[in-house]
């Protein structure tokens, strides 16, 4: 009885130590990536290539999801606002929800499952097929040549994708609210412009998406680089990337929101 109790406590301790240790390794990895970023900026076409794989290839899913999220917001917002007789505030509701929260958060979640998982799988497979080891044997640092360009490509793509998501969402809300339901177009835009502040809302949204981009990419790269070089290891790492980065996005979002919009 005492033994099983001790063993379970020991289990908790071991798991905690493991997690903390892994976070330490990930932080060290992040530092290494930053330190080895020089090469990728000198050879910018490496980053351009990764902007293509991370950003351009995620465009379709981001644009379509943004449009639909905006349309749903328009529909639901109208239903609710109508009860209070303030349909004109629909623009405010749609734009503020998108710019402050849904744009950065949903775009980052989609990005994690589209680009993040792809990054983990690619790096994991490069490791499993000894491409990383081969690069090291050719005296080329894989952190500088493979990891850093992917990091910057994804971090540059993320705010652009989030902005596109928000813009598409506002258009979707406009389509449903103004074109379909018939909310007054003038008050839709003017109330929106009166309520949405550039620094307070839009810039903070962009900052959020940059932070999410860094978090998702570093998690994806680290999981791939750290994955056991087997088919099972890579597939587990890919799943972990999506789960961990989704949790990280939502957790960070709470922290950032608490700092940015507290009582102002």
């Amino acid at each position: 009885m005492m033994d099983t109790l001790l063993e379970s406590v020991r289990g908790i301790g071991r798991r905690t130590v493991d997690r903390v240790w892994r976070m330490g390794v990930a932080a060290h990895f992040f530092l290494l990536v930053l330190l080895h970023s020089g090469t990728s900026f000198r050879r910018f076409h490496l980053i351009v290539r990764e902007i293509f794989t991370a950003g351009v290839l995620s465009l379709i899913i981001i644009l379509v999801s943004g449009l639909f999220v905006g349309m749903v917001l328009g529909l639901q917002g109208y239903e609710t606002l109508q009860t209070y007789g303030s349909e004109e505030a629909l623009g405010v509701l749609v734009s503020l929800s998108l710019v402050r929260e849904l744009g950065p958060v949903v775009a980052a979640l989609l990005f994690a499952s589209r680009a993040g998982s792809a990054i983990t799988a690619e790096i994991g497979l490069m490791k499993a097929t000894e491409q990383i080891a081969a690069m090291e044997m050719m005296a080329v640092d894989p952190i500088a040549r493979v990891i850093a360009p992917r990091f910057w490509g994804a971090v540059i793509s993320m705010p652009l994708l989030a902005a596109l998501f928000s813009a598409m969402g506002v258009l979707g809300g406009y389509l449903v609210g103004v074109v379909l339901i018939g909310v007054d177009e003038g008050s839709f835009w003017s109330q929106m412009q009166a309520a949405v502040d550039f620094k307070e809302d839009i810039l903070n949204g962009v900052i959020k998406s940059v932070v999410f981009g860094i978090a998702v990419t570093i998690i994806a790269l680290f999981e791939g680089y750290d994955a056991p070089p087997t088919a099972e290891g890579v597939s587990r790492a890919t799943t972990r990337t999506v789960v961990t980065s989704s949790l990280a996005i939502l957790g960070l979002d709470f922290v950032l929101t608490a700092f940015m919009f507290r009582g102002v």
Partner: peptide
């Protein structure tokens, strides 16, 4: 520095895919 004067052939080639 030394590895620039070394080559290594991996088991399945390890070509960059």
């Amino acid at each position: 520095q030394l590895r620039r004067r070394m080559g290594m052939l991996f088991q399945f080639g390890a070509l960059f895919t």
